[in-house]
Design a protein around this nucleic acid. Structure first.
Length: 254
DNA sequence: AAGCCCGCCAACCGCATTCGC
DNA sequence: GGCGAATGCGGTTGGCGGGCT
């Protein structure tokens, strides 16, 4: 994000314009009379004219990729586009908003009722047995939201400080904490859980067989996507398991 | 045939970020 | 450190074309 000066990417020069480049542009506009602002020109180039841009319909493979990446990254269109050669962020964004959003929404609607209940039934008992998390023992109400697993402790008398620590917040930070809310697990890249790194050993979520804790903020997701780890991760079938399985592929390590 | 509706997609817009001066 | 320029990003808008009535 932002300005990257003085290097080339994909054969394209970036950074401050030279006098020579300014002159080329001036000559061009003088000759052809292009009445466009720079931003518009840039966008047209990036999204349409740039070499390597793939035109035509999104293939099934690309569609699957977009859906899976979106589950992982959310609306990080440029990151998603970066993993789909020849497609622009704008194209992917449009495709998602016009086609996939409603498809995925409908699918989610159908699946959520069944899978959510099964996942919760399978996993929450182990949490409830944990004496270190008394509020979870009181968890008897589960609500939907975001494809993740939201655990709502019905006992609002749970010790506040403990709930805060489990949410990774200091006991004085109550601004985003609603009464009765316990822990949110899963649901993509935007997690409600942040590590405190203190008395609560907060490897709260460890992806099965994976080495990174995306939710814990130990690794910036952008860096991760550029890393070799991601290539390995991506090439394997782990991601598929991770996304489609959702919570069911997680190990809860509280 | 004409009008309307809707989906797709290119373009616009505002904001954030980074860098050079 | 402040400021402007350059760039990136994501949400939104608007035009166009095809299908339907």
């Amino acid at each position: 994000m932002g300005r990257y000066a003085g290097f080339e990417k994909g054969g394209l020069k970036k950074g401050t314009w030279s006098a020579c480049e300014d002159q080329v542009l001036k000559d061009y506009v003088k000759k052809h009379g292009l009445k466009r602002c720079g931003k518009s020109v840039r966008l047209r180039w990036l999204n349409y004219l740039r070499p390597g841009i793939k035109r035509g319909k999104i293939t099934e493979d690309e569609k699957d990729l977009i859906i899976r990446m979106h589950k992982l990254l959310g609306n990080r269109w440029s990151l998603i586009a970066g993993r789909i050669p020849g497609r622009t962020d704008n194209e992917i964004k449009n495709y998602w908003n016009s086609i996939l959003r409603k498809n995925v929404g409908e699918e989610k609607e159908r699946e959520s009722e069944v899978s959510r209940n099964e996942i919760i039934k399978e996993n929450l008992p182990s949490l409830a047995e944990d004496d270190g998390h008394p509020h979870l023992t009181k968890c008897d109400e589960v609500l939907g939201g975001g494809g993740g697993l939201d655990c709502f402790a019905s006992d609002v008398n749970v010790e506040e400080d403990h709930r805060h620590r489990c949410l990774g917040r200091t006991s004085t930070d109550t601004t985003t904490l609603s009464p009765g809310v316990g822990v949110e697990i899963g649901g993509g890249a935007n997690q409600d859980i942040q590590p405190t790194g203190d008395d609560l050993n907060y490897n709260a979520i460890t992806w099965k067989d994976s080495i990174m804790d995306l939710n814990g903020g130990q690794l910036d997701i952008s860096e991760f996507l550029q890393s070799d780890d991601f290539s390995t991760f991506w090439d394997s079938d782990r991601l598929m398991n991770f996304e489609i399985g959702g919570c069911s592929t997680m190990n809860y390590d509280l």
